Amino acid sequence: EVYKVKIKIERVLPNGEKVEEEITIEVEGMSEEELLALARELAAEPGVRIKEIEIEKLPP
C-alpha cells in the first residue's frame, strides 16, 4: 500500500519569526502508525511544531 503523507509544520526562526512549511512524501510498505512516527521524527527539530498531519491512502 502506498500512502501520501502531508505534514504542516511551524518553525520558529532564531529571530523569533514564525514560518509555516509543508512537507509531502509518498511512502510504501508502512503502517499508519509507522507513518505517524516518521512524521513526528521529521518535525522533531528544536523550534518546530507540527500543525497538521494528513495521511491519504493512494489507489493501487
Score class of each variant (00 low, 15 high):
1 E>T: 13
1 E>D: 08
1 E>A: 13
1 E>L: 14
1 E>N: 09
1 E>K: 08
2 V>Y: 13
2 V>F: 13
2 V>L: 12
3 Y>G: 01
3 Y>P: 01
3 Y>A: 02
3 Y>H: 02
3 Y>M: 03
3 Y>F: 07
3 Y>C: 01
3 Y>R: 02
3 Y>E: 00
3 Y>K: 01
4 K>Q: 05
4 K>T: 06
4 K>Y: 05
4 K>V: 04
4 K>S: 04
4 K>G: 02
4 K>R: 13
5 V>N: 00
5 V>Y: 09
5 V>H: 00
5 V>S: 00
5 V>Q: 00
5 V>G: 01
5 V>M: 15
5 V>W: 08
6 K>H: 05
6 K>M: 07
6 K>D: 01
6 K>L: 12
6 K>Q: 03
6 K>E: 01
7 I>W: 03
7 I>P: 00
7 I>L: 10
7 I>C: 02
7 I>D: 00
7 I>S: 00
7 I>Q: 00
8 K>C: 04
8 K>A: 04
8 K>R: 10
8 K>G: 02
8 K>H: 08
8 K>L: 10
8 K>W: 15
9 I>D: 00
9 I>K: 01
9 I>Y: 12
10 E>L: 07
10 E>R: 02
10 E>I: 11
10 E>P: 00
11 R>S: 01
11 R>D: 00
11 R>L: 03
11 R>P: 00
11 R>C: 03
12 V>R: 07
12 V>K: 10
12 V>E: 11
13 L>P: 01
13 L>E: 03
13 L>C: 05
13 L>S: 08
13 L>N: 04
13 L>V: 03
13 L>K: 09
14 P>K: 07
14 P>H: 12
14 P>V: 07
14 P>G: 09
14 P>S: 09
14 P>Q: 05
14 P>Y: 09
15 N>M: 03
15 N>L: 03
15 N>G: 09
15 N>W: 12
15 N>Q: 03
16 G>I: 01
16 G>R: 02
16 G>A: 02
16 G>F: 03
16 G>S: 02
17 E>V: 11
17 E>T: 14
17 E>M: 12
17 E>Y: 13
18 K>W: 13
18 K>H: 13
18 K>V: 09
18 K>C: 10
18 K>R: 12
18 K>M: 15
18 K>S: 11
19 V>F: 05
19 V>H: 09
19 V>P: 01
19 V>A: 05
19 V>L: 07
19 V>D: 03
20 E>N: 08
20 E>F: 05
20 E>Q: 13
20 E>A: 03
20 E>K: 03
21 E>F: 08
21 E>A: 08
21 E>R: 07
21 E>G: 07
22 E>W: 09
22 E>I: 12
22 E>F: 07
22 E>T: 12
23 I>D: 00
23 I>A: 01
23 I>T: 02
23 I>S: 01
24 T>K: 08
24 T>V: 14
24 T>R: 03
24 T>G: 03
24 T>C: 06
24 T>S: 06
25 I>Q: 02
25 I>Y: 05
25 I>L: 07
25 I>D: 01
26 E>V: 10
26 E>S: 15
26 E>Y: 08
26 E>F: 11
26 E>N: 06
27 V>F: 10
27 V>Q: 05
27 V>M: 12
27 V>C: 06
28 E>D: 08
28 E>R: 02
28 E>S: 07
28 E>A: 10
28 E>H: 05
28 E>T: 13
28 E>V: 07
28 E>Y: 14
29 G>Y: 08
29 G>S: 12
29 G>W: 08
29 G>A: 11
29 G>V: 03
29 G>P: 07
29 G>I: 04
29 G>D: 08
30 M>R: 05
30 M>P: 04
30 M>L: 07
30 M>K: 08
30 M>E: 07
30 M>A: 07
30 M>N: 11
30 M>I: 11
31 S>T: 06
31 S>Q: 10
31 S>G: 13
31 S>I: 07
31 S>W: 10
31 S>D: 08
31 S>R: 08
32 E>G: 06
32 E>P: 14
32 E>S: 11
32 E>M: 13
32 E>C: 05
33 E>A: 14
33 E>R: 15
33 E>C: 11
33 E>L: 15
33 E>N: 13
33 E>W: 15
34 E>A: 15
34 E>N: 12
34 E>G: 13
34 E>K: 14
34 E>M: 14
34 E>Y: 15
34 E>Q: 15
34 E>R: 14
34 E>L: 13
34 E>I: 15
34 E>D: 07
34 E>S: 11
34 E>H: 08
34 E>W: 15
35 L>E: 00
35 L>P: 03
35 L>W: 08
36 L>F: 12
36 L>E: 04
36 L>Q: 06
36 L>R: 10
36 L>Y: 15
36 L>T: 05
36 L>G: 04
36 L>D: 04
36 L>S: 04
36 L>H: 04
37 A>F: 15
37 A>G: 12
37 A>Q: 10
37 A>H: 11
38 L>T: 04
38 L>R: 12
38 L>G: 02
38 L>F: 15
38 L>S: 03
38 L>P: 01
38 L>A: 03
39 A>V: 14
39 A>K: 05
39 A>D: 00
39 A>R: 05
39 A>H: 03
39 A>L: 10
39 A>E: 02
39 A>Q: 04
39 A>C: 07
40 R>L: 08
40 R>P: 01
40 R>G: 04
40 R>Y: 14
40 R>M: 14
41 E>F: 15
41 E>S: 14
41 E>R: 15
41 E>W: 13
41 E>T: 15
42 L>Y: 15
42 L>A: 05
42 L>S: 03
42 L>D: 00
42 L>E: 01
42 L>I: 06
42 L>P: 01
43 A>S: 13
43 A>L: 07
43 A>G: 09
43 A>P: 02
43 A>I: 13
43 A>M: 13
43 A>D: 06
43 A>V: 15
43 A>Y: 11
44 A>N: 10
44 A>D: 05
44 A>E: 04
44 A>T: 09
45 E>D: 09
45 E>S: 15
45 E>K: 15
45 E>F: 14
46 P>V: 11
46 P>G: 07
46 P>H: 15
46 P>D: 04
46 P>K: 10
46 P>Y: 15
46 P>N: 11
46 P>R: 15
46 P>A: 11
46 P>E: 05
46 P>M: 08
47 G>K: 02
47 G>F: 04
47 G>A: 05
47 G>V: 02
47 G>T: 08
48 V>Y: 06
48 V>K: 02
48 V>G: 03
48 V>R: 02
48 V>I: 09
48 V>E: 02
48 V>L: 12
48 V>Q: 03
48 V>P: 00
48 V>W: 06
48 V>H: 02
49 R>H: 13
49 R>K: 11
49 R>N: 11
49 R>F: 09
49 R>P: 01
49 R>D: 07
49 R>M: 08
49 R>V: 09
49 R>G: 03
49 R>L: 11
49 R>E: 11
50 I>F: 03
50 I>A: 01
50 I>S: 00
50 I>P: 00
51 K>A: 05
51 K>Q: 05
51 K>I: 12
51 K>R: 12
51 K>C: 05
52 E>Y: 13
52 E>T: 14
52 E>P: 00
52 E>L: 10
52 E>W: 15
52 E>C: 06
52 E>F: 14
52 E>D: 14
52 E>A: 11
53 I>G: 00
53 I>P: 00
53 I>D: 00
53 I>R: 00
54 E>Q: 07
54 E>Y: 15
54 E>S: 14
54 E>C: 08
54 E>K: 09
54 E>F: 13
55 I>S: 02
55 I>A: 02
55 I>L: 09
55 I>T: 02
55 I>F: 10
55 I>H: 02
56 E>V: 11
56 E>A: 13
56 E>C: 07
56 E>I: 14
56 E>W: 12
56 E>N: 07
56 E>S: 13
56 E>K: 11
56 E>M: 15
56 E>D: 07
57 K>R: 06
57 K>S: 08
57 K>P: 05
57 K>W: 13
57 K>A: 06
57 K>C: 04
57 K>Y: 12
58 L>Y: 13
58 L>R: 11
58 L>H: 10
58 L>E: 05
58 L>V: 07
58 L>F: 08
58 L>Q: 06
58 L>S: 09
59 P>T: 14
59 P>R: 08
59 P>K: 13
59 P>N: 12
59 P>E: 11
59 P>A: 12
59 P>Q: 10
59 P>V: 14
60 P>V: 12
60 P>L: 04
60 P>Y: 01
60 P>Q: 12
